[in-house]
Write a protein that binds this DNA or RNA. Structure first.
Length: 734
RNA sequence: GCCGGGGUGGUGAAACUGGUAAACACAGCAGACUUAAAAUCUGCCGGCGCAAGCCUUACGGGUUCAAGUCCCGUCCUCGGCACCA
């Protein structure tokens, strides 16, 4: 598998879809190792406790941004993905239109000539820019720090802490002035250059223009450091420009204080300013994505080795195809410090494939997300003597993909990208990996524990704990098998550590697979978490046993009464038949929207109706029972196939259940002569009336107004308005 | 902090397009059957109140004849935030 992953790496590298550049990582200076974001706790290494620092190291990147537009647009081609997943991906890709602006600098302002680039979606506020901020690693910051120990110390401080977006967003915003300035591209005014810890080198240009009046973050920063605030977007709130502002005005509006741009609206101002910048060659409109390229280099042992060789004369050279795979050595020594492969000369010492001189093999391995991005294609052709063969096309796309919501963005976006990258390498014809997506919930169960003197928790499995309840059924206490009390720990994800797991095999042994399936289906919709309950399982078993008993009673007694033809039904049996078809209609509707728990409810309601059907008229009862039970079995078949198929045969229904047509509700059975309508007075439910099903508006109004409930609560006042909702209710407003 | 979910009885949940809140179950309570137990069946089961009735879908506002559902704000909670995978 990883041989072909390396092979694809090379193809993507050749196509320019993989490249190398510096990336920022968490560095633990004590363990001398790169830490995952998860391993950085409050800015410190989880094991060493050392203050983590940001460090720039060379890494390989996959150019997922080359597909940003396609990945975004194609979300519309995935109607069978949950809306929330598509929304999250859309926001993650984050397409925004804006302007790239160059702030020129020269001998006078910085000591050399050049431009500082920033990107902004608010070019309309350019006339309100009062300073620019650069990342600590930005070349201008380093230049300024060269002769300024205080600034150098501040830059060191900025490098502390983790790199995760959550850390960046929640840390205190800090900055320090530099003696440098850049020129405003339109007014030529000098703007001070600040170094700020919230500007990241790896994001965008590593620099931002600051407009305190119209950006919350800039406002807070300017407020803290006494930087000028210049209002350029009009608002009633800020009619008094001199008043002390509480916050920024970030909405779009009409420009003021902006010379020739005064009076323009957002779009007009962006257009005019972009045009002027373009004329001066100091800016241009451009689309920016929030999506960043995917850094795949990991300084870990476990992983697919990156098939590259570093040669001092030739640069980065791919390992020749015939030398693949680059095999992960097994005699590795794991010390917990640094990358194990980087300490194994027998692994990294090699000859340059290009010039033959001694060279160094790449010791980084790939992010394991790379593996999970194409397995579904390889699984279609596991013995192929290529990355994939034509069988991948035959089986793609995956019809139904199931996974947790935690994969909504990363795994699912990487897989979508990978499928396209493989397509563009001529490996598959498809662009998307998964047709339908279901994000399932977790299985959770109650937890119980007891603490020893040392504070260690001993966890008890829910199956061995006896709970005590008050007379309302509320759980009051719980006891372990030894009779002593345990602490009720709440409902948590099933896990070994909390000892609250349930072995499905034990369940199947005891109740059978159908009961397990029925309970799981009935307990919660599939995308919601499933709360395990032993008594719930027993409830499912009781229901299925009732189905079984009804089937056998039907087979032995009722069926004998079946006369054939369609007998005239007494009212009570017509009601039963109506109940069956009503629930069938509901079940079909719920199947279509994938809400299976209410399908299970519908089968329970059907059985309840069948069991209560009066048996006085044997022939009519047999007809209703026969039709009703055949519907029940067919609706139940996808949930409890074994039970349904067996009963279908034992009851003597024609053919095999698998071949039977899916039942459709009979509209005639649903028809009613009289219906009940609720009567409300001033929106409050006060009673109900019986009306003919086809009664018109006036008739219904008349009956409602004359009803006892209405008369009582109208208090003799004339109706001001009467709202009739067909088939539902009448609301009388007085 | 940002993005996406969620918050309804003792519990799991249902309520489709704004129209009877709590369907269907679980637990509980009472009863029938039984010498007894299990199983099964029947009834009750959001809160307050003797009752009439009033209140109730996290909290506070709003729109509407009518809000669990729509709008604004707040709180809590879960998932993700690019090196957990």
């Amino acid at each position: 598998y990883y041989r072909w992953e390396q092979w694809l790496f090379k193809r993507l590298y050749e196509k320019g879809l993989i490249y190398k550049r510096l990336g920022t990582v968490n560095w633990d200076p004590v363990d001398e190792t790169v830490l995952a974001n998860e391993q950085v706790i409050d800015g410190r290494g989880w094991r060493s406790g050392a203050l983590v620092e940001k460090r720039e190291i060379p890494m390989y990147y996959m150019k997922i941004t080359a597909y940003a537009d396609e990945l975004l647009a194609s979300l519309d081609d995935l109607p069978d993905w949950p809306e929330q997943v598509r929304t999250m991906q859309k926001n993650w890709i984050g397409r925004s239109e804006g302007v790239e602006i160059s702030f020129p600098y020269d001998e006078a302002s910085i000591g050399k000539t050049g431009t500082l680039k920033v990107f902004t979606t608010r070019a309309d506020t350019l006339m309100g820019a009062t300073y620019v901020a650069v990342a600590a690693e930005h070349p201008l910051a380093e230049q300024a720090a060269a002769n300024d120990p205080a600034l150098a110390a501040f830059i060191e401080e900025c490098k502390r802490g983790g790199v995760s977006e959550a850390d960046m967003a929640t840390m205190e915003k800090m900055g320090m002035a530099t003696p440098l300035s850049v020129r405003h591209p339109l007014t030529d005014e000098l703007l001070p250059v600040w170094v700020a810890n919230y500007v990241l080198m790896g994001y965008g240009e590593g620099a931002v223009m600051a407009v305190p009046a119209h950006d919350e973050r800039d406002f807070a920063f300017a407020h803290k450091y006494g930087l000028p605030v210049k209002m350029v977007v009009g608002s009633d709130r800020y009619a008094d420009v001199a008043a002390p502002w509480q916050d920024a005005y970030a909405e779009h509006g009409t420009l003021v204080n902006s010379d020739k741009y005064d009076g323009l609206d957002f779009q007009g101002a962006v257009d005019a300013i972009a045009a002027d910048l373009e004329a001066k060659q100091l800016g241009n409109k451009r689309v920016q994505y929030r999506l960043r390229d995917w850094g795949i280099s990991r300084q870990r042992y476990w992983g697919c080795p990156i098939p590259m060789i570093r040669c001092d004369s030739c640069g980065d050279v791919p390992v020749p195809d015939e030398d693949l795979p680059v095999v992960l050595p097994e005699n590795v020594e794991i010390t917990g410090r640094g990358s194990p492969l980087a300490k194994m000369p027998e692994f990294y010492e090699c000859a340059c494939p290009s010039c033959g001189k001694p060279a160094r093999r790449e010791t980084d391995t790939m992010d394991t997300f790379v593996e999970s991005s194409w397995y579904f294609l390889r699984y279609a052709c596991p013995d192929a003597d290529a990355m994939v063969d034509e069988r991948a096309n035959y089986w793609a796309l995956v019809d139904q993909y199931i996974g947790g919501i935690e994969h909504a963005i990363l795994h699912l976006l990487y897989s979508r990208f990978f499928t396209r990258a493989m397509r563009d390498c001529g490996l598959v014809d498809v662009s998307e990996p998964f047709t339908r997506l279901l994000t399932q919930g977790m299985v959770v169960a109650d937890t119980y524990y007891r603490e020893d003197e040392a504070g260690r928790k001993q966890w008890f499995n829910p199956a061995e704990v006896a709970v005590e309840r008050d007379d309302k059924g509320r759980v009051t206490s719980a006891r372990a098998p030894d009779g002593a009390a345990v602490v009720i720990g709440g409902t948590e994800k099933m896990s070994k550590s909390k000892n609250n797991g349930v072995d499905p095999q034990a369940l199947i042994d005891r109740y059978g697979a159908d009961t397990a399936r029925f309970f799981i289906i009935f307990a919660a919709p599939p995308d919601q978490q499933l709360e395990w309950s032993d008594s719930g399982v027993e409830g499912a078993f009781r229901f299925l046993r009732r189905v079984w008993n009804f089937g056998h009673a039907y087979a032995t007694q009722h069926r004998a009464q079946l006369a054939g033809g369609a007998p005239e039904l007494p009212a009570a049996l017509a009601d039963v038949r109506r109940e069956i078809h009503l629930n069938l209609k509901q079940a079909n509707f719920d199947f279509a929207r994938h809400q299976f728990n209410t399908v299970a409810s519908a089968t329970m309601k059907m059985l309840n109706a069948l069991e209560k059907a009066p048996q006085g008229d044997a022939a009519a009862h047999a007809a209703v029972a026969s039709e009703g039970f055949s519907i029940l079995l067919r609706v139940l078949a996808p949930i409890t196939p074994h039970l349904a198929h067996t009963l279908w045969t034992e009851c003597g229904f024609a053919g095999k259940l698998l071949d039977a047509a899916w039942p459709e509700p009979d509209e005639n059975a649903l028809r009613q002569d009289e219906i009940e309508l609720m009567v409300q007075v001033n929106g409050k439910l006060r009673g109900s009336i019986q009306v003919a099903a086809d009664a018109d508006q006036d008739t219904i109004e008349g009956i409602a107004l004359a009803s006892e409930a209405a008369q009582k609560f109208m208090d003799g006042k004339p109706p001001r308005k009467v709202v009739v909702v067909k088939g539902r209710l009448v609301n009388i407003v007085v």
